[in-house]
Design a protein around this nucleic acid. Structure first.
Lengths: 231, 231
DNA sequence: ATACAGGTTTTGGTATGCAACATGGCGTGA
DNA sequence: TCACGCCATGTTGCATACCAAAACCTGTAT
């Protein structure tokens, strides 16, 4: 009976989600989808009224948004939506690369055959979305695949970091998901193969190429956009 | 005149430190030095009274302490000082390793000759502390050296992550700083040489060995402690 | 011992007030 | 015209007070 209980409790009772968490989620959503523009001044009172809560949960959410890098909190002035610079995006993609490489290496060392099956399933889901030209599903599938690899890595500290970085990357990345798609999913296939073989070195290498190409692609896209802006 | 002003303003005016920051610092200090023991329940009201502030800044500090991993915030129950597990320490040291390796590689690519001088100065400071057997100065010098390498890497995103991870590592690591010291500072010397040559590959390799040996040393130390506890 | 009922503690959130600081506009004087 | 100082306004940072709901503790009856 003890065992049955602990097994059931592995998925704990659903506790009432703290309000600050809901506020946090709402604000990230508003930032990612562009409702709140970079540089915009976020006034606690306004947000509170708009979300139908008091200032306190808003404040607490803003604190976390700062440490996550979504807003800048200037003392005695308040919160401003963070303006990502090219420089910063490059740095972020660099860090993501080394973390993802590590993740892939660990995943290759740990993966069981049923894990491989799930990876393949996610892969085909992504390919479907690519064929359908559905950007939203494409990004979701991409996120899910990388997230599952991280799960296989079985390193909670790493997972935490990658989830934060990953969200930011998604922000930068969404606009280029489609043109980059075909190449990316070919590389995913190679990655899965390497993981299936338990070849950590190769998995890491494939992931490094994958993330570096993504970064490269992003840079090129920026250059094109800059050229267009200049005329 | 414009130039003179901007040069002077490179070090901005000192703004009054937010109280929540002071609370955050005070609590981390209390946790690191062991006044607050792992697992201990932190009651907002008590902390507030003890620190002579109201509950609000305490709550905000606790939020940040959670995201930094110093406390666990259980919904409707409050904050508990985080209990680091062996598993978690191992994971943390693994992640730190890949980040430090990346940091070393970038530093090797960027370092100027005056940077090398500063590195050597930090190195000799560490060696002095080692000779004097002063653990506190030793840990400080170690932190400073790694931090300066990270500065040379010129990647703010990376720096942010390493500073967080580094603080946790210091918590685990302080008790073994002295026995590990001699080897560690030999490895530091090799690292500086590689950075001076601008050899990113070698710098990364040296740093990988360095951090992995530190992790290894930590594991052994744990095993010894466990043996001692069993009798 | 076990289970239950009731009281206590603590959190999470609301509401409100206020001092300090930042900002922007306005008028005055050079 | 421009620079400076002054003042009105808005916002944050923190304090205080209060409350509902959840979790915890305890004593009692079984």
């Amino acid at each position: 009976m003890r065992e049955a209980l602990t097994a059931a409790a592995s998925r704990r009772v659903t506790r009432p989600a703290p309000l600050r968490q809901a506020v946090y989620d709402a604000l990230t959503e508003l930032i990612v989808n562009g409702s709140l523009k970079p540089g915009q001044h976020l006034v606690e009172a306004e947000l509170a009224e708009h979300l139908g809560v008091s200032r306190q949960p808003v404040r607490e959410a803003l604190q976390r948004l700062q440490t996550a890098g979504w807003v800048d909190l200037r003392p005695a002035q308040g919160a401003f939506v963070h303006s990502p610079t090219e420089e910063e995006a490059a740095q972020l993609l660099g860090v993501r690369s080394v973390l993802e490489v590590y993740s892939a290496q660990l995943a290759a060392a740990n993966a069981k055959s049923e894990d491989i099956e799930h990876l393949c399933e996610l892969q085909s889901r992504g390919v479907d979305a690519l064929a359908a030209g559905d950007v939203e599903r494409l990004v979701a599938a991409n996120t899910a695949l990388h997230a599952y690899v991280t799960t296989l890595a079985a390193n909670d500290v790493l997972a935490e970091m990658l989830s934060q970085v990953g969200q930011k990357v998604r922000w930068y990345y969404t606009p280029i998901a489609k043109p980059r798609g075909k190449e990316a999913w070919n590389e995913h296939a190679q990655l899965i193969k390497a993981i299936a073989k338990g070849d950590a070195v190769r998995a890491g290498e494939v992931m490094r190429k994958h993330t570096e190409r993504t970064a490269e692609f992003y840079r090129k896209q920026l250059a094109v956009a800059a050229g267009a802006n200049r005329g």
